[in-house]
Amino acid sequence: MHELAITQSVVDAVTERTGTAPVTVVRLRVGRLAGVVPDAMRFCFELVTAGTPLEGAELEIEEPEGRGRCRTCGAEFPLPDLVLLCDCGSADVEVLAGRELAIASVVLATPVP
């Protein structure tokens, strides 16, 4: 259940930036090949945000699709999973996208003018 540790790291990283200001929205990017289950993060989010400035915040998770490029024939194609096989038969495929694991932004409850 690494999602618990990872979700805890969201709280740490956000409060390092925004301190005690109440947060209403947290936006993450979790690629489909990142090895992290967004639903598990949502489950953990409520637990780890309790009693923090992120308590009650909405969790928005963007899930970028996987994309790969074949190092043999140069073709680019969608990657639904980490089985890296090109139609040309090569397994030498570079993952271009889908492994994102980042906090994009947050929205604060009380914007200061």
Binding site: V14, I103, L108
Partner: peptide
Amino acid sequence: HSHGHDPVPGVVEIETALLAKN
């Protein structure tokens, strides 16, 4: 550590890797 604790208005761009601390 570079702990910054100054609240910033509205949307705050974080753009940090989730595992940045690790």
